[in-house]
Amino acid sequence: MTTSLRTPPNHTVLQVGPLKPSLERTLSENYGALVLPDEASERGAFLSTHGPEVTAVVTSGRSGVDADLMRALPHLGAVVNFGVGYDTTDVDAAAERGVGVSNTPDVLTDCVADTAVGLMIDVMRQFSAADRYVRAGRWPADGNYPLTHQVSNRRVGIIGLGRIGSAIAKRLTAFGCTISYHNRSQKADSPYAYVDSPAALARGVDVLVVAAAGGDGTRRLVDAEVIDALGSSGYLINIARGSVVDEAALVDALTNGRLAGAGLDVFTDEPNVPEELLALDNVVLLPHVGSGTVETRAAMEQLTLDNLDEFLRNGRLLTPVVEPAMAV
């Protein structure tokens, strides 16, 4: 059976970087999408041949579209991101060129917020470490596992009180936690206390949760000063982007006892994780699975395709972070 293409005439879709396998199949079978070669040596010839055809790119936060690639796609109108993060796409260059950029907000909020709370519980109660203790046969040999720390009724600071940060706050309020936050600007309707700097926020809490967007504006926002302000009894949870935290400073604090622990779903150079963290029982390490549920990934895939369809039909995006210049 021949699959009919959904791409309107005069439109070519380009896949940049790996995507969810079912999304890749749909882009290939239903949209006739081209795939940008992984090898840099092959890209020049590919872009010379196909670059002028491309009007829409589908990518993810892992790959994105930089300014150089945009210049090689002179008729590009939209970058459609699978995922909420889009810091690997040069949004300033996109805005200058009239290229729209979309992401998939809301549909992953609950699962990422659940992950943040799960990491907080795990690192403070050391459930993963206790599981390893049992599996290694240490319970009968060495006795009961050492005491850990209570999660409920803690002071929690959240950096980035957007959709995900607010969902985390709502969950932790049910745990009896006192919530404060730092944002680019104070939220007038927020029931939580606003703190005007990350360091000041860290100084007044037991747990610091990083939920800020990635990108140059937040790069190393959580630096050595913030980590030291959190202190040797404090915990850091990061479900945002690895770039938001100064990873070298974090590793130094954890290995030298200046931080009680960390729960990390994201890293600076994924999939590479600092080797120093691998042996620490007070650190929980996840392979960037915050939104990694069947339900959420299916919803993300559908919203990605809905954004692509809307752009191809009407020159608009359903969930833009940068608006396209005009209808096409």
Rank of each mutant, 00 (worst) to 15 (best):
L172C: 13
T319R: 12
S22T: 13
Y31I: 13
D216F: 00
S102C: 09
V54N: 02
L254Q: 07
G61P: 00
Y133N: 09
L236D: 05
P324M: 15
G137M: 10
A129F: 09
N307H: 10
G64V: 04
V222E: 02
E24M: 13
G257N: 10
D306W: 04
E29V: 04
R155L: 11
P52F: 08
N144W: 10
T178K: 11
S28N: 04
T255W: 08
H75F: 09
A248I: 11
S4W: 09
D92N: 07
S233D: 15
V209H: 05
V322D: 01
R241C: 10
L285Y: 07
S28A: 15
L34W: 07
E310W: 01
S190A: 15
D246C: 14
G118V: 07
L285H: 06
T268W: 09
H50Y: 14
V284G: 00
T178E: 14
L47D: 05
D206M: 05
V80F: 03
D216V: 10
P37K: 10
N144Y: 08
T88D: 00
V54D: 02
S243G: 12
D106F: 03
P287E: 11
P52K: 07
R138K: 15
S48H: 07
L236A: 13
R184Q: 14
R125I: 11
P105A: 12
T304W: 00
R241K: 13
P271L: 08
V222A: 08
A72G: 00
G261H: 08
S102K: 06
P140Y: 09
L259I: 11
Q15R: 15
E323H: 13
H75K: 15
S4V: 15
A229S: 11
A167Y: 01
T26M: 09
I237E: 04
A211M: 06
W139R: 11
G261A: 13
G64K: 02
I179M: 08
A224L: 09
T104A: 13
G64D: 03
F267L: 13
N153L: 10
K20G: 00
L19K: 04
A33G: 07
T89G: 03
V283H: 06
A56M: 06
T59F: 00
R71C: 14
A141V: 12
S152H: 08
G157Y: 03
R132M: 12
M326Y: 14
V134Y: 10
N307E: 10
H75N: 15
G143I: 08
L208T: 07
S190N: 11
T7K: 05
L172Q: 02
L221F: 05
V226R: 01
A229L: 03
I121F: 13
V58D: 02
S152Q: 11
E270K: 01
L19E: 01
S152L: 06
G234V: 06
D87T: 05
A213D: 10
S152C: 11
G44H: 06
G231M: 07
S185G: 12
